[in-house]
Design a protein around this nucleic acid. Sequence first.
DNA 1: AGGGCAACCCGGACGC
DNA 2: TGCGTCCGGGTTGCCC
Length: 269
Amino acid sequence: MPELPEMETYQVFLSHNVLNKPITDVEINREKSINKPVSEFILHVKGKTVIQVRRRAKHLIFELSSGQSLLLHLMLGGWMFLGNEENAPDRTKQVILSFGDLKLYFIGLRLGYLHLLTSDELDKELADLGPEPFEMKLDDFEERMNKKKGALKPILVNQKFMAGIGNCYSDEICFEARLNPFEKASNLNEEQTKSLFSAIKPVLTKAIEAGGYMDNPMYEGDKKTGGFNDNMLVYEREGKNCFRCGTKIERVESSSTKSFFCPNCQKSC
DNA sequence: AGGGCAACCCGGACGC
DNA sequence: TGCGTCCGGGTTGCCC
């Protein structure tokens, strides 16, 4: 659910708020969220500081003063809240990292996880990810896209092809590029491949600027997070009018993934 | 290679 | 209010 823009928002926010503060307490309420026995995990995390928060694809990496890292993936429905015992949301918190009175709550980690890794293990874990969309070059994108035969949507959400795009933003990107998400990559001409590439960064940038499409606030009084919910052009807009041509947006489900698109102006090739 | 699909997991929304 | 049911959805891995 959280995709690149949402994780980027968390990265910036946490970089401003938790760096270089000692982790005074660690609470694990769901052992499956971590990758070590609870006592070992706590031993290696408690008392350390977070010296850097990085993002890679949909992951967040908390670099600890010990040299180890915490690798976070929120998967479906996971989110974080930075606050204290008074203003924390009334939800199940799978993991809590305390920085004195300030607490970072990890909520909704069902398939999501927070893994303690050495830098070698971290590299291994992230090795298969494709390029970051913001660092991608057109010729590289074209070259790899031209080898692809399948539909655009599965390619865009494939983390090995390009890292950080999920269900929501792939639909928005296809709309922006006026391409049908089910179109086969092999049918794209050069101009269409270019317009697909050109759609990626602006869609993500706009989403980041608007606060992403998350449901939950990052801190008490947070009004910005989720601001992109109202800026979506096709995602979750089934039956509503296309902002470009007025045609009703369609929703198609295939292999348990829903896709939204305008059947008129996202023409097949 | 790519499409299809099951499994993973459980909080919380919803219905009665 | 209270209990049972079921959905969501990124990722992996397996099969064809």
